[in-house]
Every structure is written in C-alpha cells, then in structure tokens.
Amino acid sequence: MVKQVRKLRLPGELSQVRAACEFIVDVASDAGLGDDGVFQCQLSVEEIFTNIVEHGYGHDGAEKSIELVCEISDDLLLISLIDEAPPFNPLSLEDPDPNTPLWERDTGGWGVYFVRKYMDDIRYKLENEKNRLILEKKLG
C-alpha cells in the first residue's frame, strides 16, 4: 500500500539538477534509506535528469518540464521521471565495458550504467505521449 506520494515539477534545464537532487535526497531519507541508499537514489535521478536536459530536450527545455513523482510504501520507493521529449527508452542503451582501457573510451554511457547498478528495477513506459522512467528501490 502506498503511504506517501510526493511530486516536483521542474523546468528541463541544467540549473535545476540541484533542486532535483535536493528533493530526492529528502524523499529517500524520509523513506528510511541509509547514506548509501540515499546516494544511489540521488545519483540515479541526477543521471536521468541530466540525460533528459542534454539529449531529450537538447539544452532547450526551459519551457518544458521534468516531473518527479515519488511513491513510498512499506517496502518500496518508486521514483518516476516524466518528460515530454521525443520517445526514448534509455534502457535500449548498451552498458559501457569497465574493462575498456581509459584511452580507448568514449565519454558516455556511465549514467545509465549507474542506474542499472544501483536500482533494484527500472521500467520504461510511453504514457500520454510522455516518457516515464520508473526507478524501483527496495526499502529495508
């Protein structure tokens, strides 16, 4: 049963990353996660938020929004990031290889890698023509 729902809608700009992070740190702490869990939620949200601003909105998202919806239940924290960029499923990206030598590396791909590593489940939906990425973190 969902005990609490918290939402925040922000303009799709890089300057809003901090507000998104502060919000998620607050929610994850309230949900009862420890320091590591809070860090992992912050990292995941930062990565997805930044990707939407840079790739989804192409740094032109001031008039568009990114909505964060958090649902806390007894054993689960669900974090949804909803944007109005063209449909894109970040889970379609392949993870980079940590064994690739540094001098041969491309610069991208580590954001979604972290989300996959630190969240318990990730789902993508196209809903009312909006991208919705749902991050699931187990509590306790």
Binding site: F39, E46, E47, W103, T107, W110, F114
Partner: peptide, 19 residues
C-alpha cells in the same frame, strides 16, 4: 559528497591531459 558520471567524464579528460 556527490559525483555523477559528469565527474567521470572530467576524470577522463584529466587522465588524457596528464598522459
């Protein structure tokens, strides 16, 4: 207290510049 993959990209640049 916090670093995301944006920081890793800076680390990559740092490594290349130092090499």
């Amino acid at each position: 207290h916090f670093m995301s993959s944006a920081g890793l990209r800076v680390m990559l640049l740092l490594h290349r510049q130092l090499q």
